[in-house]
Design a protein around this nucleic acid. Structure first.
Lengths: 246, 246
DNA sequence: TGCGCAACAATTATGTATAATCTGCGCGGT
DNA sequence: ACCGCGCAGATTATACATAATTGTTGCGCA
């Protein structure tokens, strides 16, 4: 029947709250890479106890969002150009296969949700330099939702899980290497003219590109759809290449 | 003078010890799938405190070796035929690509270690029904080592990480669905004649098959090597198909 | 007499306070 | 200047307190 859980104090466990808060702060680059995460400072920052934080950190560690050294505590995981390239390679492998499966196995519901996600993405204002963070987050959410919808037709649960993890890591690299130029020395738009930077962002986030990808997919044109997906991932890569000087 | 009290506990942390003990017991099917893991019972089993166990469990959860329900504790993760198939699919995707990369990028050290791993595998006694667990473990270790050596020529760190995780999960399914027939009702060799069962095991673990795979790889024959790898994964799958009745 | 519901008891998860151990760093002695 | 001692500050582990869930018992009602 209808089991009503009582849950006297907060609705969700504090460990879960700690996990989500920390995760969001790391993903959005509010905590810079390599920042030491001492329990006491986190207790102060989030007003949480000792156990929930430790549990959250140990979960984040197996997700590779924080690193850990025995008896020396936790730090926010670092970002690097080489890891970015590695992530891009893994993304191509995994998402290509997922898209292939989706094209073969996707049903009507999948098609409808893909069209809906594409429409929502089209409505969001496109990327540009120094845009307000709320707009940036909206665009990122809808962009992620579109790619999720694209791959969602596939039945491969484990591959989708991996794709999600890659996506998370790329999000973090994205934010730290490109979109938060003020937070890292010498990164982002400061390296080139804002005009050029905007052009790159425009190229990487071009809605037409996503439209073409969706159409090829809906027409079950496997070869072309995968070509477009790989090109899309490569374009994003080129954007970083342009941004990163050495 | 006061150097007596240094290094009181073991060299590694108890959380790490708890993690490794639990992990091994789950992987070797000493703890059956769906077994509830209450802290108190684990405290008794491993003679460890409360915090290390909690930390170990939360790490195992993000690895999907245990499942967790809020306010209802942890259990050993379940196994199922559908998840097994899903894992096999993911393995084909990821290992095919890793092998392709290894064939293109592998150096001399890689070749030597691959040959060494193959030699070690050849020395281990092959699989058969009701073999002693120590021999089973030895064969499994060398088999894993061979496949690791095969893929190790690739530079893709994230993909190798994923391959490792898939490998771990398959190991668990393997043990629970095939090699521990006495532990699960109606599984394993009981379902067919021991002769037939042995034939299947023989086919899946045939050393010649691994030899051919290695030789195609060392000759940098990408197409044939990947064919053999996919066939190898499929054979293992067929073994399970034979064992699983419905 | 049998079934269902509700309060109760036991077990277990969750969180806090506290003790013990370890690492890094500065101070002082040689 | 260099080596070692010792003092913070942090991590790691234990004991204790609290809250939630599960199982059970007993009572009421059909």
């Amino acid at each position: 029947m209808t089991e009503v859980s009582t849950m006297r104090s907060g609705e969700i466990s504090k460990a879960e709250k700690a996990y989500e808060l920390l995760r969001r702060d790391i993903l959005d680059a509010h905590l810079a890479p390599e920042t030491p995460l001492t329990i006491s400072s986190l207790k102060e920052r989030y007003e949480l106890g000792w156990t929930p934080l430790r549990e959250a950190l140990s979960r984040l560690e197996t997700e590779r969002l924080v690193t850990f050294s025995p008896n020396r505590g936790y730090r926010v995981a670092g970002v690097s150009r080489s890891e970015l390239l590695d992530l891009q390679r893994a993304r191509v492998t995994i998402e290509s296969d997922l898209l292939r499966e989706a094209i073969h196995a996707g049903d009507e519901t999948w098609e409808q949700q893909l069209v809906a996600a594409h429409y929502a993405l089209k409505q969001a204002k496109p990327l540009r330099a120094n845009m307000p963070e709320t707009e940036l987050i909206r665009w990122e959410q809808r962009h992620d939702a579109f790619h999720n919808a694209l791959l969602n037709g596939s039945p491969s649960i484990w591959l989708k899980r991996f794709a999600e993890q890659i996506s998370t890591q790329l999000h973090r690299h994205h934010r730290n290497l490109v979109f938060s130029p003020t937070l890292i020395a010498g990164g982002g738009a400061d390296l080139m003219g804002e005009e050029h930077y905007n052009a790159l962002l425009e190229r990487a986030s071009n809605v037409d590109h996503h439209t073409a990808l969706m159409e090829a997919t809906l027409q079950r044109d496997e070869k072309r759809a995968i070509e477009l997906l790989v090109e899309h991932i490569g374009l994003t890569l080129l954007t970083y290449e342009g941004v990163q000087p050495r």
